[in-house]
Nucleic acid binder design. Structure first.
Lengths: 356, 356
DNA sequence: AAACTAAAAGAGACCGGTCTCTTTGACTTT
DNA sequence: AAAGTCAAAGAGACCGGTCTCTTTTAGTTT
């Protein structure tokens, strides 16, 4: 029969009040830390709470206050180092400011994302940080803001949405590396992304729903056009959604007669896979193929050769998004702000002149 | 004055009921999906709900049902690929089973962990998955189970806690690689971990509070003892908590007159740093130094040479933990189960015979 | 057609806090 | 000593759902 003394079947303020010999209201004032209370009462309540091992029920508190102290985060894939690092930035700020984070993985699928938003709104999160899977399909996000809960977009913006947005200067970064490659004599430059289109083919940037990637491709194509390279749309490859897909695409690309002399990988997971395929096919980097990857993942500096990358301030991306959201939740927000964080190209040895 | 038609200042069941011309109870039955309702009423309520854009308040629902549909997860560092992959496993199962995940980062600090548990209990999570920072300090975890909420330990167990536990066979893995290294003639084998002790020195496994790491070190030391290698305690290095710390420790180690001929890195973040330092010091792997790392991080196969690793079923670790928790939440749980998932050594080229 | 049964709907308490409004009582003020 | 002031405490409504208990309604039985 060992019922522990702390058979805590939810001790409530009423229980504490009773034990302390005061009214529920007074006990609530002490435990909730509001209103004015005498020292005598405060001590009595505190002692009673300790004796009963009182635990506040945040759910009940949220009910009346309307604030849950929670922010909802929807990312594409927490397993991707990009998101896990951004997530670290978000959780750090959340902890410092007394918020709790609910994480949902969208798997970059729009339906999952919609369901996630619905769930989070039902749970009454105070605000949202979302990395939208599709820039074009943001009705559910609009709805979220309409319900009065602030939203911050992470890494991907949307012109249709006038909300706080934190992105990197993707277009500029893409322009930079494309220029560099062209200057080195590259003409057959492939751009490879996980973003997909219905028929798995790329025609125009408008096909790409992920804002950050679309901007990069626009930058890439723009520079190519300026350099009088035409038809570069054919060199944009979509659908590298898994390592297997990536391997298939890259293998096909590298085994074709017109194989690229340089590849730009849209994230480090893809970059890694490109690297692996090259090694497998016996192609040398950079002599047979130059490689540039987005995201300065930790391993990129340690391969042979080390990989030239676009360093994105990923932690700060998450941190800034969270700070923006918290500020707004504290009523500090003015107009929607669009923060563009700068990227930086880290030149390493995976890029060289195009082979003759 | 553009007040949108959906100026949704929280539509409640009462509002829907009123619009549908039924009682609050009936509307609640339809919206909550319980009890018996006539088709006429159901249609009326459904239509009214749609018209008013009714959104259920999960908070209020949780209040009465006592279930929040939420599980709390406390990990050391979501930025670490180990945890982000495990997290992926957890969130996948959660989504499939209709649960939502609250994530808190402990930063491997016991006080933060305690605060996290308190917060999660206050938020009335239905259950917890925790990677305890200290095996010895689990009072707060005991308290959590005592409050009736199931707990599952992830990657690190505790003898003091009779709860569901999912770990890898760390001891066995450590024994395996240690045997292998000794067989190859290594005698000066260093083990490097992020776990720290008060004075940053290692004396006995009892100093190590992280269960998984302690078991590995026990395995390591045990095999050494069996091979008549004594004083190997001096070769265990603790406190590689950041890349900077790791670099300092490894540099000191490799520049000493009695430098190790092999290093076992306790996770991939440390392994990567060891790799970098070697390159910087001009030491060749594996000829000057053999390297084995725990966690088959994606990059380990792509370095020159590729790194021999202990592959842990990280995703499944998270997945299993979540499944165990959900089962228990659904009342299926019997006795506390301890699941030990098997590891596998992936032999690559970073290990060779000890130099003469 | 009266009596019986079961389905459907309504009324209202309840969860555990917050918070407004009212009352109590100690301390000034002249 | 009577009036005034303000801190402290109490009473009870409220948040938005769920759920029990009671009443109404419709359908079945003989």
């Amino acid at each position: 029969m060992d019922q522990s003394p702390t058979a805590n079947t939810s001790v409530t303020v009423a229980d504490v009040a009773h034990k302390a010999g005061v009214s529920k209201a007074t006990a609530a004032r002490v435990l909730g830390g509001y209103g004015t209370v005498s020292d005598r009462a405060r001590e009595a309540v505190t002692a009673a709470a300790r004796a009963l091992d009182y635990r506040p029920n945040e759910l009940a508190r949220s009910m009346t206050t309307g604030r849950s102290g929670t922010i909802g985060v929807v990312v594409g894939d927490i397993e991707n180092p990009f998101f896990s690092l951004a997530m670290r930035g978000i959780t750090d700020v959340a902890r410092q400011t007394g918020f709790t984070v609910v994480l949902i993985n969208s798997g970059e699928e729009i339906d999952t994302e919609k369901a996630a938003i619905r769930t989070l709104l039902a749970k009454r999160v105070d605000g949202l940080i979302v990395s939208p899977a599709k820039e074009s399909d943001v009705g559910h996000l609009k709805e979220a803001t309409r319900s009065g809960r602030p939203l911050v977009l992470l890494d991907r913006g949307s012109d249709a949405l006038d909300v706080d947005t934190v992105i990197a200067d993707d277009r500029h970064a893409a322009e930079g590396i494309t220029c560099r490659l062209i200057a080195l004599g590259h003409r057959r430059i492939a751009y490879l992304t996980a973003c997909d289109t219905p028929d798995h083919r790329f025609r125009t940037p408008a096909d790409i729903n992920t804002g950050s990637v679309r901007r990069r491709i626009e930058g890439f194509l723009g520079v190519c056009r300026d350099a009088d390279l035409s038809g570069m749309e054919d060199w944009v490859h979509v659908g590298a959604v898994t390592p297997e897909h990536t391997r298939r695409i890259v293998t096909a690309m590298l085994e074709s007669s017109q194989r690229p002399t340089a590849i730009i990988a849209s994230d480090s997971v893809i970059g890694l896979e490109v690297f692996k395929v090259c090694r497998q096919l016996g192609l040398g980097i950079p002599n047979d193929l130059s490689l540039v990857s987005f995201h300065d993942a930790d391993w990129t500096s340690v391969t042979t050769p080390p990989v030239t990358v676009v360093r994105q301030p990923v932690y700060r991306l998450g941190e800034t998004a969270a700070r923006l959201l918290v500020d707004r939740l504290n009523g500090k927000g003015a107009q929607a702000s669009r923060v563009v964080l700068q990227t930086e190209v880290i030149e390493r040895a995976s890029v060289t002149e195009a082979p003759a």
